[in-house]
Design a binder for these strands. Sequence first.
RNA 1: GCGCUCGUAGCUCAGUGGAUAGAGCAUCAGCUUGCGGAGCUGAGGGUCGUAGGUUCGAGUCCUAUCGAGCGCGCCA
Length: 603
Amino acid sequence: MLRDTLKHLVESAVETLITSGQFPGEARVPTEISDTKNPEHGDFACNYALVATKKAGVPPRALGELLASVLMNGATDSSPIASIDIAGPGFLNFKLKPEAISAYVQTILDLGVDLPKAAAEQFKGQKLPRLNVEFVSVNPNGPITVGSARGAAFGDVLSRIFASSGYDIDREYYINDGVNSKQMRLFAESVLSYALNQPLPENGYQGEYVKGVAEDVTRLYPNIDSKSEPATWWQARSQELMIERQRQDLETFGVGFNLWFSEQSMHDSGLVTDSLEKLKLNGAADEGCFRSEVIREGKEERIEQKAEECGPLWLRSTKFGDDKDRVLLRSDGRPAYIAGDVAYMESKLGQRGYDKAIIVLGPDHHGYIPRMNAVCQALGYPLERFEIIIFQIVRFVKDGKPAPMRKRDGNIYELRDLIDEIGANSAPAAPKEEQQRIGRDVARFFYLMRSHDTHMDFDIDLATKQNDENPVFYVQYAHARICSVIAKAADAGFVREAEAARFDSLLTHPTELALIKKILDLPVEVARCTKDYGVHRITTYAVELARTYHHFYDACRVIQTDEPDLSRARLNLCHAARTGLQATLLLLGVSAPERMDREAKPI
RNA sequence: GCGCUCGUAGCUCAGUGGAUAGAGCAUCAGCUUGCGGAGCUGAGGGUCGUAGGUUCGAGUCCUAUCGAGCGCGCCA
């Protein structure tokens, strides 16, 4: 908002200079308004002169001085610019009039928690792409682990960011429920073994959760004679109960989906067969008795054909940049797993017509990128309509040492264990529901603090025991503090009035202006996230916003009975700050408590 | 062997080709007879793995190299 205004002012000043012949036409370059690193440099900086210097053939400082003089000479009372300095190699440093900044308090209050939507301003008049974001998609033979939870948190917040920016977005969970799956058959056999109290099959699934599924089946179908039911019945029941368990854990984690898409449904409907036909028609699949592979020798690359037994249907993915061709139909005619992926791509980009399909996958899947890109192109769709985002591995650290993902008793480290552990340690006396809320808030925040494409350590001790030092509490505390101030102000007779905004121009203190500017950064951060998926910056932003509030709070007393107008202005600012924190925490799926009652420390 | 990701303070990590590379934790020193001290202020701590290159300018881009993790099925 503020930045957009400045950007437009700079651009029109450049136009003025070009039309008057003082700048060459080449000087029309994209420019950016950025923060100043040092507050002494003013409110915002512009790198125009540095970027344009080469094309204009004029030294940057000379460009900057001309531009600054046009900006200042043409300035009216309504211009937000108070002064411009040319600094360093040629930055234009803008100092804004305080009232130009404080005027935005009312804008923030009008937008409320829709504040991120202001990010959509940049898309005005454009039709935003219709998105499908697929994430988690854990096989229905296991629980949501602390590892897959990173993808859950990331995909969820990315979806929230797109939605808040005005995109039409579906969040989808792909259920790997192919009836031919060996894994699922073995899982069902393992469940049955538990139900019958028999030894597990070889390499069978073990752990509490398998037993739990067996108990659930027995409980839900008391009149069923377990033994007499066919294996397919057990497979179907095991699967649906496992999925339900996953769904519940994700819900506790604050992650929801509006579409649950079944792999098997595409086999049943014939979409798999049709999609393979389409590949053949496109010349991207055939039954030739060979497989192409990319051979690399130094920098040289060549494709070699290796003889194979006849029978399978091959996806000639090497035509589209993959390392080797992939099997679509096996020798015995059964579809390979990737056949489902082909149909799934066709479902998303063809049948259902999404403009773009995004898939969030774990680090063990990065080998899929070339082959899935090949699938996309083989079906005749441009690569721009498909994107895989890989999140990196999480290492759990306890007592300063890496903690195994499988616990000593053989059980898998589940997301629900992590949530319970954090909640129980942070608030031992709180009711279960409250503990889960805390566990969810802290776990989500921790996962989201790090860039998704960097390996991260999840320090369980920090997340649980040292909760005083926990950044999520720091942010929530700022919110609770604001709520407390607002309540206190009401006791003192300061209640917001309809025309409260008339006092906003009294906000001139550096910490007041800094706070307003910081709140206005939220839409900027959100807009960036829709481009580079750097959702972790939202957690950094949340901490910075909280800190900026604490600075203001420390420097400016809000409630002063001898300064009623200033008190009202600052109260408005408190409401705006609360709005900013609420909007930020809402994006992160973290709660914004109005009170944080500290439990007595155990002795 | 090939490919992908990462390497920044004691630890965990931010960092949009731009100004003196930042934050939290940890360590040390301060701040409260006023709105929540889960707060604020200050100090110390860096060959941005290494070596080249691109350019007005590189933690950021390119190449090489070292190190860590992951992936390379007619499994799903």
